[in-house]
Amino acid sequence: MAKITNRSKQAETTKRKIYECGVRLIRIHGFDGVTVDQIAKEAGVSVGTYYYYFASKFELFSEIFKQADEYFLKEVKGHIKAEDFRGQITEFFEKYAEFNCLNGLEMVKKLYTSDNKMFNIKGRIMQKILEDIIENGQIKGHISTRENSTEITRIFFVVARGIVFEWCLLDGVMDLKSEMNKIIASMVEGYMLNN
């Protein structure tokens, strides 16, 4: 039994090393500027080992988005402190800004391009958490129902990604969290009902 545990720990360590090396190279060279061979060499593994853990370079890139969803599942869902819906939505996007800051400006610059279609994936955990907050607010009569929770979530993410993109354009000189709070709080008011 211990050998299986050690083996699975080693496998997880290897996968994590490949992932971290891939992310580091993508940060430096961009997605198209890195090959699987380079990632494998950087991680100190064979190309075959790379393909054992990741079916393609795109799958490694997808792992970055999976990490974002895991962060929101562990750090955001059930951990929002605000009791009112205005505060819950604003706090959700504070966490979104924090997560982008944790990834670092250079990595975020590589992710926020029109070539990155990962942003178009529907039904991600991150989106579902916000949809649930909005839907709950609609059920309780605090948030407008002129659009459904999925559409309102989409609109908020369009704006939030725009704020992050501006942070990238300005080379991180603006306070991302503060700017996110200000703009999202203003948007939230447009969806709140007077209750």
Rank of each mutant, 00 (worst) to 15 (best):
G33K: 10
T49V: 04
Y112Q: 12
H79Q: 12
D69P: 09
G44D: 02
L73I: 09
E42G: 04
K109G: 03
V76G: 01
A97D: 05
G30D: 06
C101P: 14
H29W: 06
S114T: 15
E75R: 13
Q67S: 15
I39L: 05
Y71I: 00
F119E: 03
G87D: 01
L73W: 12
A55V: 11
R86L: 06
V47H: 07
A55P: 15
K122T: 15
F61H: 10
S56V: 06
E83Q: 13
D84E: 11
G87C: 03
F61E: 06
D84G: 08
M118D: 09
Q38E: 13
F92M: 03
E59I: 10
A97L: 04
G87I: 04
I80L: 13
F99Y: 01
Y50C: 02
K77F: 11
S114E: 15
L60K: 04
F92H: 02
H29T: 14
K117H: 10
G30M: 07
G78V: 05
V108H: 00
D32S: 14
N116I: 08
A40M: 02
N103Y: 05
G123Y: 00
S62R: 15
E98M: 06
K74N: 13
H29E: 14
N100H: 14
Q38T: 11
K122Q: 14
A97R: 06
G104S: 05
Q38I: 07
V108Y: 00
G33I: 10
E70V: 07
F85Y: 13
G30C: 10
R86A: 07
I64A: 09
Y51H: 01
L60S: 04
D84V: 08
K74G: 06
I89T: 10
S62M: 15
V76T: 04
A82R: 10
F31E: 04
E106K: 13
